[in-house]
């Protein structure tokens, strides 16, 4: 299966869009007509064919364009990629995880040949052909985590485990929903989640941490998270909020369909073999309202979820300014009919 990679942008003229196939495989995050925080962690098992869960690492039609956007972000702000010195073993673990997974599941695009420590990596969509010595940083053009994550969709964090806690000690973060790696690096699990409302009191983070401390090698887990973004902008960082925040004031009843996007994060966690660190990947998927409503079940359900969202959650997610306009627009696609259980289209 060869993927047709699209030429598109996530800034300036915002030419991003989803093909009908990409819409159908969108990881719609609501299995009910309302939403509240939960420890919605499940095994990261292979899912239905063509779904974003089919393989551990999902590569889709936006791959090349997303990698170009990442390169632009890093050029403007090198602090988006940082790693504390003790994380170098985990960086190599990540190289292995991503190269193995990409080469195994997308062999027509990526090839990996291993001969002991001598590895040969070919990335055809990005035109890369690299021979290197696994474990020897000097044989790559940049540090290992940066090298491989410039070639893989999604943000990646490497979490060190010590003192019964997880510490965010390395990461590459260019497509984030308003959090700063530069600020959070070195924090533990409770600390980097400090600004999230409500969930602390629900005990969500205590339970999630306990669960993750026991994460086993070869048994990755995943969860979905969501927010909304105006324009298909991947780099909604706090660093650049003074530039993109104004977009939230530009939503009108006429442009909701094209401007307002549901942004879903497929978060996955793997235990790494050499370092005992954990990979925390955050892969963002965007879908415009006019694309979303082509799936009638999703149109009805998202209208209800957004309409009934608790105000503090709407505030935290930054939706307040354009929520009502969006709910009004969506209401045209909600005839009040019951929705079927589960995430998938009918």
């Amino acid at each position: 299966m060869t993927i047709q990679f699209k030429k598109e942008t996530f800034r300036d003229d915002f030419t991003f869009s989803n093909s009908p196939e990409a819409i159908r495989r969108f990881p719609f995050p609501f299995d009910k007509d309302q939403y509240m925080y939960a420890v919605n962690i499940e095994q990261h098992m292979p899912g239905p064919e063509k779904s974003p869960y089919e393989f551990p690492i999902d590569i889709d039609e936006h791959y090349v364009a997303e990698m170009e956007d990442r390169a632009l972000v890093l050029k403007q702000d090198p602090l988006r990629c940082q790693s504390l010195p003790h994380m170098i073993t985990a960086e190599w673990d990540l190289v292995e995880l991503l190269m193995e997974s990409m080469a195994k599941n997308y062999p027509e695009h990526f090839q990996l040949t291993r001969d002991g420590d001598r590895w040969h990596w070919v990335n055809q969509p990005l035109g890369i052909d690299q021979r290197f010595t696994f474990g020897d940083t000097a044989t790559l053009p940049c540090p290992p985590m940066e090298y491989i994550t410039r070639q893989c969709q999604g943000d990646f964090n490497l979490l060190d485990q010590r003192h019964d806690n997880l510490w965010m000690d390395a990461g590459i973060v260019t497509t984030q929903a308003d959090w700063s790696l530069d600020f959070d690096i070195g924090m533990n699990f409770m600390e980097w989640h400090a600004p999230v409302p409500i969930a602390h009191d629900l005990g969500v983070f205590d339970r999630a941490l306990k669960f993750l401390l026991n994460l086993q090698q070869g048994r990755p887990v995943r969860r979905l998270n969501w927010t909304m973004t105006i324009n298909p902008r991947l780099d909604t960082s706090p660093e650049n909020y003074h530039k993109w925040g104004i977009d939230r004031t530009t939503v009108t009843p006429e442009n909701v369909g094209n401007k307002v996007h549901l942004r879903v994060e497929l978060q996955a966690l793997w235990r790494l073999p050499r370092s005992n660190a954990i990979v925390f990947s955050i892969r963002a998927y965007l879908i415009k309202m006019e694309e979303l409503v082509t799936i009638p079940k999703w149109a009805r359900r998202f209208h209800r979820v957004l309409r009934d969202l608790p105000p503090e959650l709407a505030d935290y997610k930054g939706l307040t300014r354009y929520r009502e306009t969006t709910v009004d627009w969506l209401s045209k696609y909600d005839d009040g009919a019951p929705t079927s259980p589960g995430f998938f289209p009918d």
Binding site: F183, D184, I185, G186, M187, E191, A194, P195
Partner: peptide, 9 residues
């Protein structure tokens, strides 16, 4: 001022 503190910084 966001109620978020970095020990490193």
């Amino acid at each position: 001022v966001r109620d978020h503190y970095s020990r490193r910084l």
